[in-house]
Design a protein around this nucleic acid. Sequence first.
RNA 1: GCCCCCUUCGUCUAGUGGCCCAGGACAUCUGGUUCUCAGCCAGAAGAUCACCGGUUCGAAUCCGGUAGGGGGUACCA
Length: 512
Amino acid sequence: MAPQKVRRAPRGAGSRSTRIAMEVRTRFAPSPTGYLHIGGVRTALFNWLLARRHGGQFILRIDDTDTARHVDDALTKIFEGMRWLGLDWDEGPDVGGAHGPYFQSQRTDNHVAAITQLLESGKAYPCETSTTELDELREAAKAAKRPFVFRGPNRDMSGSEALALWKEKQCAVRFKVPQGKTTVLLDAIRGAVEWRTDMLGDFTIARDGGKPLYNLASIVDDIETKITHVVRAEEHLSNTHPQLLIAEGLGAPLPTFAHVPYVAAPGGKKKLSKRNPPPGVMVALEEYEQAGYLPEALVNALARLGWSLDDHTEIMSRQTIIENFSLDRVTSAPAGLDPDKMYWIQDQYMTALPADEKIELMMPFLVRAGLVADPPTPEQKAVVAKIEKACGDRLKLLSDIIRYGAMFLREELVIDPKAMKHLRKPGAEEVLAKLHATFATLEPFDLATIEAAVNDVREETGVGGKINHFLRASTTGETVGPGVFDCIEILGREKVLKNIETAREKIAAEAG
RNA sequence: GCCCCCUUCGUCUAGUGGCCCAGGACAUCUGGUUCUCAGCCAGAAGAUCACCGGUUCGAAUCCGGUAGGGGGUACCA
């Protein structure tokens, strides 16, 4: 009789409301590599959302077992990135908690205790087979086109013998994989996944010298920190088989597992990597911050990458996402990062952001660009407020304030080559002279009066609509920007007159 | 090689046997608004649901196989 294939529960079949009744504890366990990968951040977000959805705890653990160098700096990156995105953790290296320590490297005693328990109960055995011998066996199996399934010679040792031998030799330890059995994982995203234990060799859980290996450490930590839902990247799916066997060997209750697909590079199915990202694609979280993305926008965008609320909702507040998040609506196929859509989502959030908050967030970008003082003077603040208002929807990223603000904030006029092209057109010089004369005495120097005055000059000179181009190019040095009359008003009479003069000199210099 | 996972418009997705000759969004294209840009409004185009076979009155949805992509096969994490 063929085993009934277990299907995923229908979407939304309960977990959205009451399926998970017990306490939920999730974790994010990054390695301190020096940056937060955007795909890893999404995994962190899903864990965080699940915990918040069910009023549970989100734990930050640092999987630092093989990185001794520069951990401090990498740690700072992790903390700062998570905090910036608003993914707060209830237990972790810096805040502590009842199940610490939260550095994997500091849990070695727990791992060794688990190894000892497995040895003692006859679930594992010390193995002295050398790596060179193993390599030969592997090669031989490959040559014979047989799968390589290794079982060590000490496999049938008694628990006490095994323990004694290991204490004496501190050699590698292998898990004694039971034979003829099938392991079934009920993955919250993928449904039932089965493995036959006969396909799995006796994997090592400690290397020669006694150092615990990842598969052992990972599941032991999850068990001991009382993690209820292990939500992690799909590359760990294969690791789950040995981890399940270890948990079973330890007699420990199992967490629920959910394997989320990897994040692919835009337009493809290739995994997004930091090593060779496609041009213009940002992989590290900090790049998004530096580019001027809003944390709320990024949360929304990342949530939509592999998860959906329904068949039409794209823009959702953090609260809405929390209230509706469930693993059964996470896709099982990899999702390519879509920079265009992220940008669009960012646009939606920027548009909705109140002006004063936007200004507050944009100011540091101007400070870093050297366009305002640190701290900005009251005058500069006032100008920036005017710029923001005039720019309106044109500000998509916080950093856009640099692009649009420079023409108002810098002292000297800088004329873009495209703007210069306008100024070289016949009649420009003459019109500018007229405008200069008009502006010099214009009272009051405000939007309505400026506009009316420019209209008069246009009719007087008969240049038509081109006058706006001349005006924009000569006063801002740009061809794009906010409405030209807004620009004039923001610049103020003094600067407008000065800039027009500068522009005329340039024109004359080129002509002469 | 062997094991496991994945496969719906260019992209993110909806879809769990009839409501789907497949819906939404981004991107694209066209028209309108406009001093530029960005917007905004209106519209268009875009998917033989990877492929082949089966079950069924009926399949994107269930079953089998094939192909392609990904992960694992470490005394890495």
